[in-house]
Design a protein around this nucleic acid. Structure first.
Length: 570
RNA sequence: CGGGGCGUAGCGCAGCCUGGUAGCGCGCCUGCUUCGGGAGCAGGAGGUCGGAGGUUCAAAUCCUCUCGCCCCGACCA
């Protein structure tokens, strides 16, 4: 690629809308431009990087015996109605009607379409196992798109699905995909970890997220440095051991103005864990009171799972006042009628608790679960915190941040059942196919790579996903210099490297700055200083090291550098 | 959807409070001098001030409505 013919609009300043580094650098380096909120155009540089990631995906998935398909983005509603997700998916699903007023949606994921396909085509155990994937544009009308390509409403995703005859086979497919994903992210030059996760709206029994470690990540992860356990905080189990309280009688106490746990704790001069935090939620249109120890935060994902609810939402002030007959801040389980009670397991049979009295400015002391109130469900309901015990080895957990670039699920039979995907075994008996599903956000992976690989001058691409391996920079644009440049350019291309030549009639400083911003792993600087001795300079973007190399040897030299960095064995 | 903020030249911003000529830096075009880390000088192009209504002799500026964008929360690759 010659710069004089390229479309590389670089910017000195980042647009005001960009918040995180990857977004700023992708815009500044000319990889992307915004068309609407969460909708981006990929410019040539962006396309090149994305294609490189896609190529790695294909190589590793094909190696794992998965095959590529291409499913329609435009999906008929009937399929989604069969699985119930037409209703469940909510506003995130982009719905539209055709000219005959028939309902369609734009696929946010493709379990329905792929399962329908497999249900139609697969009959026999001989057809299994089967693993199919695609790289496709997905549509999700996110409530809040943000961080550029990191959370878009239209984005490129690799989604794959495995089909097995039984649980054991599904487990093996799952393992194979974990292996493939590990190789993929290693090859992309990312520092990541596979983390236990909640399976969310996709459904299913078990899942791992692939998290790229970055301080700007949207996800919090609990990590155990002593045994290697890692989980999304949403999922991370909490096993609290609270000191036993003294029992006693239920007593109503006037606590004027004490709304928050802190205020109540101060009023009684007792530690916050003696209080019970009662939060009112609306779970699938039904009011629910969730109780947790006062010093902790409620984990909504855990609550949703404990209730087996489709949707939960914190009740608004008006609802709270109606349910508790008091101002917000005095909700408690005692005497709360027509509301389901769910409690953290620490509250079961616990006594000496301080709870809201459902009366403005009053609390109960000495409350006891099972005597003064009875919760219907007990579960782990709190958010894991720094210093909590590791569920595997009891060591202290720390909290890190990460970007979710991939997610693998064991789906079980959720979709195969509703779409009737079955096979016949050796004995002619019919069984339901067991599924797994596996996603990688392609653009997100690119953005995550930038979050992890940049400095104040710009991007520092890991060589395997760099748009070009080498940027040839003539210091002067005269015949003599350009002749050498052209020669090296042609030779490198012949050698199979991806090479750029900055043949613009610009001052060297401009070219250096652009090269650093775009993040080419190597610059080949060709100027009078070196040419006097028949040499050129090769500078590494990552280390900043410069080496003088004879023109005649430069091609082999660069070839070796690049192929060394492309190498991957495991 | 709830809370906060912003829309003025391609990009970054000032001007608005206190109505009266639309301005700065970068980028872009021309010429000359330069040329090893975003050059200097001179000249130039580019704006229905997001849109619609209103107040006024007069609106970027005041009022109303509307559209778009960004940040914090629920969603997720």
């Amino acid at each position: 690629m010659r710069f004089s013919r390229g479309f590389l609009p670089t910017l000195k300043e980042a647009p005001a809308e960009a918040e995180v580094v990857s977004h700023k650098l992708m815009v500044r380096s000319g990889m992307i431009r915004r068309l609407a909120a969460g909708v981006y155009t990929l410019l040539p540089l962006g396309v090149r990087v994305q294609r490189k990631v896609e190529q790695i995906l294909r190589e590793e998935l094909n190696r794992a015996d998965a095959q590529e398909v291409f499913l329609p983005a435009l999906n008929p509603a009937e399929l989604w109605r069969k699985t119930g997700r037409w209703e469940v998916y909510g506003k995130e699903l982009i719905r539209l009607k055709d000219r005959h007023e028939r309902d369609f949606c734009l696929g946010p994921t493709h379990e329905e379409v792929i399962t329908d396909l497999v249900a139609r085509e697969v009959r026999s155990y001989r057809d299994l196992p089967l693993n199919l994937y695609q790289i496709q544009t997905k549509f999700r009308d996110e409530i809040r798109p943000r961080f550029g390509v990191m959370r878009g409403r239209e984005f490129t995703m690799k989604d794959g699905y495995s089909f097995d005859r039984d649980e054991a086979g599904a487990e093996q497919s799952y393992e194979e995909m974990v292996q493939a994903y590990t190789r993929i992210f290693q090859r992309c030059g990312l520092k990541f970890s596979a983390v236990e996760a909640d399976s969310g709206a996709i459904g299913g029994s078990f899942s791992h997220e692939f998290m790229v470690m970055a301080d700007t990540g949207e996800e919090a992860i609990t990590v155990c440095d002593s045994c290697g356990y890692a989980a999304n905080v949403e999922k991370s189990p909490v096993s609290l051991k609270l000191p036993e309280n003294e029992g006693g009688e239920l007593k109503k106490v006037h606590t004027p103005g004490a709304h928050s746990i802190e205020e109540v704790a101060e009023f009684f001069s007792l530690p916050p864990y003696r209080m019970v935090k009662t939060l009112l939620y609306i779970a699938d249109d039904e009011p629910v009171a969730a109780m947790i120890p006062g010093h902790r935060e409620l984990n909504e994902v855990k609550l949703k799972n404990a209730l087996d609810a489709v949707d939960i939402e914190l009740a608004d002030a008006e609802t709270v006042e109606k349910l508790t007959n008091s101002e917000v801040g005095f909700a408690g389980p005692v005497g709360l009628s027509d509301v389901r009670l769910v409690a953290d397991y620490t509250i079961e049979n616990s006594e000496g608790l301080i709870v809201g009295a459902n009366q403005t400015d009053y609390h109960y002391t000495g409350a006891r679960e099972g005597r003064d109130f009875t919760a219907g469900i007990f579960a782990d309901l709190t958010v894991a915190q720094e210093g909590d015990a590791c569920p595997k080895c009891e060591a202290r957990l720390s909290i890190r941040r990460g970007i979710e670039v991939g997610h693998v699920f064991k789906l079980g039979c959720k979709y195969s059942e509703s779409l009737d995907a079955t096979y016949q075994d050796e004995n002619g008996e019919t069984h339901t196919i067991v599924m797994g599903c596996y996603g990688i956000g392609v653009g997100r992976t690119v953005a995550a790579a930038i979050e992890q690989n940049h400095d104040e001058d710009g991007i520092i691409w890991p060589t395997p996903i760099a748009p070009y391996h080498v940027d040839i920079i003539p210091v002067r644009v005269d015949d003599e210099t350009m002749q050498v440049c052209d020669h090296i350019y042609d030779s490198l291309e012949t050698a199979g490297l991806d090479v750029a030549l900055d043949d613009r009639d610009e001052r060297p400083g401009v070219k250096f700055k652009d090269a650093d911003l775009i993040g080419f792993p190597y610059k080949a600087v060709i100027g009078p200083r070196g040419l006097k001795e028949g040499k050129i300079e090769i500078k590494s973007r990552r280390t900043g090291e410069t080496q003088l190399v004879a023109i005649s040897e430069s091609v082999t030299f660069l070839e070796n550098l690049v192929s060394e960095e492309m190498k991957f064995d495991s």
